[in-house]
């Protein structure tokens, strides 16, 4: 049987779909195309959707271009650049007046950085990819727009 590293050198193209968890109460999905330059280096284009319910309602979609460097047979580090669009919705109940509720909605677009650590195994043409920790950090925000809605209830 061939090792994952040997298969990366032979199979130039890969497509993977994944599901993950976002702390504290979120989840995400990712669709990735990869191009293997050689055993060590892979260039990836990934579309990602992340959503979280806590501490605020938040959803974001991003497209990332990444370089993934394999240190051995399966272990990798990845770094990339991304373009992200997101919406954050939050509700504040004022402590001094329980009938006042402030709702805010922020829409943003941002360029960001993306880092990841994980392992990818290949058996024949099958791929199993486990990214242990991924970080996406928006850095440069473009036209962030905030809408505040002040609601009187009761």
């Amino acid at each position: 049987a061939q090792t994952s590293a040997q298969l990366r050198a032979q199979q130039k193209h890969s497509i993977t779909a994944g599901l993950g968890f976002v702390p504290l109460a979120g989840a995400g999905g990712i669709l990735t195309y990869g191009f293997s330059v050689n055993q060590e280096l892979e260039i990836q284009l990934a579309a990602q959707l992340l959503a979280s319910a806590f501490p605020a309602s938040w959803i974001s979609g991003s497209v990332n271009l990444k370089a993934r460097y394999y240190l051995g047979n399966a272990f990798y580090l990845s770094a990339g650049l991304g373009m992200e669009k997101g919406t954050i919705k939050d509700t504040f109940i004022l402590p001094n007046n329980k009938v006042d509720v402030i709702k805010s909605e922020t829409q943003y677009s941002a360029f960001g950085l993306d880092f990841g650590v994980g392992q990818q195994w290949r058996w024949g043409s099958f791929i199993l990819d486990l990214e242990y920790v991924g970080v996406h950090s928006p850095l440069v925000f473009l036209n962030p727009r905030s809408v505040g809605v002040d609601k009187q209830t009761g």
């Binding site: 193209h13 993950g20 976002v22 990735t32 486990l130």
Partner: peptide, 14 residues
């Protein structure tokens, strides 16, 4: 900063 923990993906290579 958005973190994601344990992203499990499956797919194919060609």
């Amino acid at each position: 900063v958005e973190l994601r923990f344990v992203m499990l993906s499956v797919g194919g290579a060609f």
